[in-house]
């Protein structure tokens, strides 16, 4: 499989003011995105997601390290021919109409007028802007600008699509549209890099994610690997459970309900559920169901960052101690200082 985007040992710092010390935005971030995957870039505000994207799109130069688009350095304009980019809160030349804007952006990607003219109506229709095709972008709402930005990013049918917060500011139909478009791009074999705070969307759309925290890459893996490594809970439902076992179940469960001889218990962790199921069976009870419950990406993310901020004694279900094949923090370079 071909690597479409690769960032190697990215280090970037900013000086917030003349006399203020340099702030490290990225500290040796490395990852690679393969062709055809939908890749998520996660992190809190200020984690370095947008800086990474800006370096990958050639808008910023790294202090050290480099980003490669299809094997060429992103600073090279020709490398960006295969890139479609939607910035966060996109703004465009406000006195142009969507038609004129698409003509401009299309020509800059090397498309000829006829091709742009042919693709424009369908694309505007696809993003729901055909009625506003001749209105100036100045009067567009945030959501409409977002839709136009998406059309501009898709116009030249790029191999790699980098979307920075594409779902912010959109109404429910707009969100659905963007999700459909992303899935459509995946079906067409194109690569999508998605940067979003809405983790439910990332979970729904992405195959693989990296987590950035304070400029460092702290975790990467497939959604399945991340959530598999997280502690699961089990919902146990049984009947004919002896009184003594019921008491122990109630004590261990985070949620316990007993009605009409049937008990339902929510058991945290990956061991308690199967263990109690065996005990129910041994005690002569009847196990009706034992359903594993996976943690959502959002819950995992919050817990993961919380555990990083307040490191406690490691427990069996901790994502940091799990044996899933993801790259741990220790394998990432962590320079002490950002070069100035």
């Amino acid at each position: 499989m071909r690597t479409v985007l690769e960032v190697r040992q990215l280090v970037k710092g900013f000086k917030p003011g003349l006399l203020k010390p340099r702030v490290a935005a990225l500290r040796g971030v490395s990852f690679a995105v393969e062709q055809g995957e939908c890749f998520g870039l996660l992190g809190q505000n200020g984690a370095g997601k947008t800086t990474t994207i800006k370096i990958a799109t050639g808008l910023l130069a790294a202090d050290s390290g480099a980003a490669f688009l299809l094997g060429k350095e992103s600073g090279d304009a020709a490398a960006r021919r295969a890139l479609g980019y939607l910035p966060e809160n996109p703004y465009f030349h406000e006195h142009l109409t969507p038609r004129e804007g698409l003509m401009t952006y299309g020509r800059l990607c090397g498309l000829d007028r006829a091709t742009i003219a042919e693709r424009t109506p369908a694309l505007l229709e696809r993003v729901g802007l055909s009625d506003a095709a001749n209105r100036r972008l100045r009067g567009f709402s945030k959501g409409m600008r977002q839709r136009f930005g998406l059309a501009a990013a898709l116009l030249h049918e790029p191999e790699l699509l980098i979307l920075d917060e594409p779902l912010t500011g959109l109404d429910p139909s707009g969100r659905r549209l963007v999700k459909e478009l992303i899935l459509e791009q995946r079906r067409l074999g194109r690569t999508v890099v998605l940067c979003s705070h809405v983790l439910a969307d990332v979970q729904e759309l992405c195959d693989r994610v990296v987590v950035l925290h304070r400029g460092e890459l702290v975790r990467q893996g497939t959604i399945h690997e991340l959530l598999e490594s997280a502690p699961r809970s089990f919902e146990l439902c049984a009947e004919g459970v002896p009184e003594e076992l019921c008491t122990r179940l109630a004590a261990a469960a985070t949620l316990f309900r007993a009605s009409g001889g049937t008990v339902t218990a929510c058991l945290p962790g990956s061991d308690l559920g199967p263990a109690f199921a065996a005990q129910v069976h041994a005690a002569g009870g009847r196990l009706l169901s034992l359903a594993p419950e996976r943690e959502s990406l959002e819950a995992w993310f919050v817990r993961f960052l919380d555990e990083r901020a307040h490191p406690a004694a490691p427990d069996a279900g901790s994502p940091r101690s799990a044996s899933a094949p993801v790259e741990p923090l220790s394998s990432q370079p962590q320079p002490e200082e950002v070069s100035t």
Partner: peptide, 17 residues
């Protein structure tokens, strides 16, 4: 300031152009 150059410079365009 308005970041209107992002969609331009992220294409096959050099800063000189």
């Amino acid at each position: 300031e308005r970041r209107t150059l992002y969609p331009l410079l992220s294409r096959d365009v050099t800063r000189g152009e």
